[in-house]
């Protein structure tokens, strides 16, 4: 292996910088989208979900560049790549099945658990920011002991 390393020393360095720049730019785009959503798109809706989808695609692109170039998996033998990548295909089922299940559980509870939807969506804070500042100096232990009280109080 040692003798090939010498020839591609320069191209290897170039590739490292190229991938570094790609990763940084992708991260900056992600942050710009995240910040844009914070400033102008507070309400849940199609556009927000669409932008979140773009962020997830950018995340997968970053993962590809890290694994393929930084971890050099792209340079290994195809058979070895397959023994690592094919088992990870389980994630496709894993993600779809579990998120679908979670969503279904929500729908079932909202439909059949009396008062569940009202209980979990009633406003208990003026705004999330102010609600946060109220408890600024409260220790976690005290906070957790007051939570069940405020929760059960309404019912």
């Amino acid at each position: 292996m040692a003798h090939t390393a010498h020839a591609d020393t320069n191209s290897g360095k170039k590739e490292i910088w190229r991938v570094t720049i790609i990763l940084s730019v992708l991260t900056l785009i992600e942050l710009a989208i995240g910040f844009g959503m914070y400033l102008w798109l507070k309400d849940e809706g199609f556009l927000r979900h669409f932008l979140k989808g773009i962020i997830i695609i950018l995340m997968l692109a970053k993962a590809f560049y890290i694994v393929s170039y930084f971890m050099h998996l792209g340079h290994e033998l195809r058979n070895m790549i397959m023994t690592i990548v094919v088992p990870l295909g389980l994630f496709i089922w894993f993600i779809i099945a579990f998120l679908y299940d979670g969503n279904s559980f929500k729908e079932l509870r909202n439909t059949y658990d009396a008062g569940y939807k009202e209980r979990t969506t009633e406003k208990t804070h003026q705004g999330s920011t102010e609600g946060k500042h109220d408890v600024k100096d409260v220790k976690p232990q005290e906070k957790s002991s007051e939570n069940p009280g405020s929760h059960g109080g309404g019912h």
Binding site: K123, H125, V135, S150
Partner: peptide, 23 residues
């Protein structure tokens, strides 16, 4: 976050819609 009251079993942050934060 700990000083804001957040820890395992304790969530001081309200949900997006202003309802009690998910534990």
């Amino acid at each position: 976050l700990y000083h804001e009251g957040a820890w395992w079993g304790s969530n001081p942050f309200a949900n997006h819609d202003g309802s009690t934060g998910h534990q």
